[in-house]
């Protein structure tokens, strides 16, 4: 396998592992909020892939994996757009 491809494959593989094995326990700040009773102050915000789940896919693992892959694509596109904006501003 081309070594350069690994740099793309590793994050995809990590998303796959995360969808299968990532802990569902609350994170550190959520734990603090629960212990000190201010978790109710959190306001729900709407997002297309809330809680890293892909809409209309019922299988939890597949849903998380697809959402993660979409996240990688969004981030890559965001960087491409920013690069093009920086390039055009520098001209």
């Amino acid at each position: 396998m081309n070594k350069k491809n690994l740099v793309f494959i590793i994050p995809i593989f990590t998303v796959l592992l995360a969808s299968l094995f990532a802990s569902k326990l609350p994170d550190t700040l959520e734990t603090l909020a629960i212990n000190y009773g201010f978790e109710d102050k959190a306001k729900k915000t709407f997002s297309l892939f809330s809680n890293y789940s892909f809409p209309f896919v019922e299988n939890h693992y597949a849903s998380t994996f697809l959402a993660g892959i979409i996240g990688l694509c969004i981030l890559y596109i965001l960087f491409k757009i920013t690069t093009n904006v920086i390039k055009s501003l520098a001209k």
Binding site: A18, G68, G71, L75, Y76
Partner: peptide, 13 residues
Amino acid sequence: ALWVFAFQMFNIP
């Protein structure tokens, strides 16, 4: 950025 995003998805107890 892709690496950071992917590894941030992986919560460990």
